[in-house]
Computed example of a mutant assay.
Amino acid sequence: MKKVKYKMGKLGKHYFMKKYSQINTLLPDTEAATKSNILNMMQKYDSLYLKPDEGTGGRGIFKIAKTVNGFVLRGGTSSRNYHTLDALYNSLHKFIYKHKYVVQQGIHLLKHDGRSFDIRVMVQKNRSGQLETTGIVGRLAKPGKIVTNFHSGGTPLPIDTLLKSHLSGVERTNFIKKIESLGREASIILGESYKSKKAFGVDIAIDSNMKPWILEINTGPDMSIFNMLKDKTMYRRILMYSKF
């Protein structure tokens, strides 16, 4: 049987990682953004995200959510209402087909000061070629924005700060360790398909039940977000590892 070679955009990475039982329950449902997939998934979930299969930096992302009398489509800071999902899809289909989009189950992100946030875990190869977690940072969405990315106005903050209102001291420390090791484990798995890559940026969402979700793994992660933190310890470590 011919081995399937995944084109490793978001969807290819998702299918690859889904085969591993250690993490497959932590991956949000993700499919190609066809009309039938969007309709089916909207019946299962309160909200969906539409993302470019190969995009980075939070650009070109849309969110679809149910409203009292239909659906709302949000992108950037603007939103439009539609009575039916058909009408919503028709307004978008040429664009999402041309730019090859995926549709992903929406996660109810944990909030800090009423704003959503997620987490970026940096994982890098050490001197002996083993993957190690070298950094972890929270990304707080700009008010009114649907994405947390730094390049879309998100604010990088210490993860400890963002989790303060959700977990007590010891719980928080243990939870952060859990997220760091999850980032490493997910990177080791995806690394099976990316043997030559030396760094992975794992985007992890925490839902309102404190369940972590692996949203995406970047194989060319931006280090500059760590330089935005007041404490430069992590950034210096990441720079040092990038030379190995």
Rank of each mutant, 00 (worst) to 15 (best):
D203A: 00
I189T: 11
K211A: 07
G201H: 02
E185A: 13
Y194G: 05
G201Q: 02
I188E: 14
I188R: 14
L190F: 08
T173P: 04
K198N: 13
L190V: 07
Y194W: 11
I176D: 04
N174M: 09
A199S: 15
N174A: 10
I188S: 08
K198T: 11
G201N: 05
A199F: 08
I189Q: 10
F200E: 09
D203C: 07
A205V: 10
I189D: 09
E192M: 13
I204Q: 04
S193A: 15
G183V: 00
L182T: 04
L190I: 15
N174V: 05
V202Q: 00
V202P: 07
L182C: 00
K197I: 12
R172N: 10
E171L: 00
S208Y: 07
K197M: 11
K198G: 02
Y194Q: 12
G191T: 01
A186L: 07
K197S: 14
R172F: 03
G191Y: 05
E192G: 15
V170Q: 12
V202G: 03
S208P: 02
S187R: 00
I176Y: 05
K211E: 09
K211T: 13
M210T: 04
L182P: 03
I204V: 14
I206G: 07
M210H: 12
K177V: 06
K177T: 11
K177S: 15
N174Q: 13
N174Y: 07
K211M: 09
D207H: 06
S208V: 12
S208C: 10
N174P: 03
S208Q: 15
F175Y: 15
E180Y: 05
A205R: 10
V170A: 11
A186W: 03
V202L: 03
A186Q: 07
K198Q: 09
A199L: 04
E192I: 01
S193W: 09
S193V: 08
K211P: 07
G183I: 06
E171A: 11
F200V: 09
I206C: 04
E185K: 15
I206Y: 01
N209V: 01
S193D: 13
S187P: 02
T173A: 14
K198R: 13
G191V: 01
I204W: 03
G201A: 06
K177Y: 05
G191S: 06
Y194P: 02
G183M: 00
V202N: 06
V202M: 00
L182R: 00
F200M: 09
A199H: 12
K178E: 13
F175N: 06
A186I: 03
E180S: 15
G183L: 00
R184T: 14
E185R: 14
A205S: 12
I188A: 10
V170L: 12
R184L: 10
A199N: 10
Y194H: 15
I176T: 03
I176L: 08
N209F: 09
I188N: 08
K195P: 05
G183D: 02
M210W: 00
I176M: 06
F175A: 01
E192L: 15
A199I: 08
V202F: 04
F175R: 04
G183H: 02
K198D: 06
R172W: 07
M210A: 05
S193K: 13
L190Q: 09
G191A: 06
R172Q: 14
S181E: 15
Y194M: 15
K197F: 11
A205C: 11
G191Q: 07
A199G: 11
Y194K: 14
G183K: 03
E185P: 04
S208G: 06
K195T: 12
S193Y: 13
K198S: 08
A205Y: 10
S193E: 12
E171C: 01
N209A: 12
